[in-house]
Design a protein around this nucleic acid. Sequence first.
DNA 1: CTGTTAGCGCATTCAT
DNA 2: ATGAATGCGCTAACAG
Lengths: 336, 336
Amino acid sequence: MRATLSDVAAQAGVSRQTVSNAINTPRIVHPATLERVMAAVDALGYSPNLHARRLRTSSARTIGVRLEPVADGVHGVLLDRFLHAVTEQAARLDRHVLVFTADDADDEVATIRSLAQRSLADAFVLTSTDHRDRRVDALADSGIPFVAFGRPWDEGAAPHAWVDVDGRAGTREATEACLAIGDRVAFLGWPDGSGAGDERRGGWRDAMEAAGMPANLDRAVEDDPAEAQDAVAELLAAGATAIVCASDTLALGAIGALSRADAAVPVVGFDDTGVAAGLGFSSVDQSLGDVAAAVLGLLHGEPDHRLVTPRLHRRAHPRWGLPAQRSAAADGKDAS
Amino acid sequence: MRATLSDVAAQAGVSRQTVSNAINTPRIVHPATLERVMAAVDALGYSPNLHARRLRTSSARTIGVRLEPVADGVHGVLLDRFLHAVTEQAARLDRHVLVFTADDADDEVATIRSLAQRSLADAFVLTSTDHRDRRVDALADSGIPFVAFGRPWDEGAAPHAWVDVDGRAGTREATEACLAIGDRVAFLGWPDGSGAGDERRGGWRDAMEAAGMPANLDRAVEDDPAEAQDAVAELLAAGATAIVCASDTLALGAIGALSRADAAVPVVGFDDTGVAAGLGFSSVDQSLGDVAAAVLGLLHGEPDHRLVTPRLHRRAHPRWGLPAQRSAAADGKDAS
DNA sequence: CTGTTAGCGCATTCAT
DNA sequence: ATGAATGCGCTAACAG
């Protein structure tokens, strides 16, 4: 059977409480005793019974994360990566991750309440937050600790911890890279109104204006490759020298248009999904590892939200993509 | 504060143990008392403290699942969906899902051992099992309950519970559908040696032979759209009237080839990912909900492995894809 | 700095 | 069929 606190105490010739202290508050125990205790811990292969600890402390050191239904592949992959990063980094902080599903926002809130009340998870990550997100207010009211992945898009929202990716900076970098090749950099994005989409268009516009170029090659379509393909055909006809896209899905359509037109202008996507790797076009990487780190930081009390800067993942490709950078700092994560 | 067993007992005018019995073994308690107890439970909004229960019983009613690193998008999406299905169905059985990451197979085994020993999870799901999978033997030796998603591909493996998708049946159905349109159905798959890939090729061959057609339009490439594109160009030149693919990634390349060649033959992918929905080609859906159900069934002791039959998700599309079926039973899950 | 006492909430003996 | 005791393993108070 597994060793308990008492076993360690007996082995080390101290009381159970001292062992507990040695483990949880090592600084208040005498160095010599500490060493003896730790030796006993090693000798017995002791590890604390977490159920007992959780019962005693009513806390689980566990983060709850909702698994969203995988609608379109792109979004799904993104959250999957994020979850992976959160889980990996949580483990380093000796925390676990419990996942759950929910039918809609209300169900999610109800489930979170239930998990929190039973101390199965003591903190939560909200993903895919949107305008007037009901979940934020509900959780803030309940006093349940949470961090949103996604900035508060409207004023009225309760103040809360959040982390987001600076999409504007991402498309700005992409656009600047494209400007090194030709002046007429086009943008293919989504219709106005989606916060993230507007940000990404803004980054393109910023870069164009900073370069003194007119930001007039601009199309907006739904996140669908077929629509993208038609739009890009127009952009090419208008003389675009590069296409910066708001998503890899749109970039996929753009590649299709290039292929049909036998054109060879660079395309840059957004999210750096497997499609970008597979087709070999450059894409803006959301740096989900950084997002996860920021989220965990906030859950540990650092009281500020964060805007994480994405990175352009450059890919050189026979037909599409930006030329590889002269310097090093390329690749390492392309598709196998 | 939350109600405890004692509170309910007091409210119902019985002892704590009777309440415990009423909840865990209702059949051994007198119907009248049972009713009184349940009324008290409702009145107080009682729910058992799981930490206490877990401490007492040394079990967590929790399933551990490893989050694999998302290499290529396609694979990632698949496991993501599977995880979602498992989590959703586990919740219905009053079970939770704990996720974890691992660097490699050995690390995964070590982590599973640790989680199992501490009763943080009492059963595990192994995904992406391959030839001579070390994890299977290690877990079987340890006596840790687990189910593999993926059949044992070699003889030597320890006998164990598993669930897999009948890839052969999937491509067979896809091929049969294509045969309704033209005789020269080609297959684009992976090089021999991957169990799943060989199965999928086998299904195509089965269908061709059953129809009395020669199975000679066959190409094998790595799971990469660019390679696929070239191979499909050859298949088209050889007169293919349809392309059945071993993955959506290959199908993506096939679509590219069609586009360049301005051809209009149907393409069928495998996995029914977002790419298939976005581009509108038909694809074989792995029925991960059924897989999840079978996995949970096995974890509950049903002692047989299962082969889940996938379904062809037909999509009608202006340029590519099979014609929609005459009957109903189409759609409902296309990209938004 | 260390040891003693107490109890988190539950399920499992045993009695009755 | 129900009730009384016991302890799962741990940490929070206090006392020494």
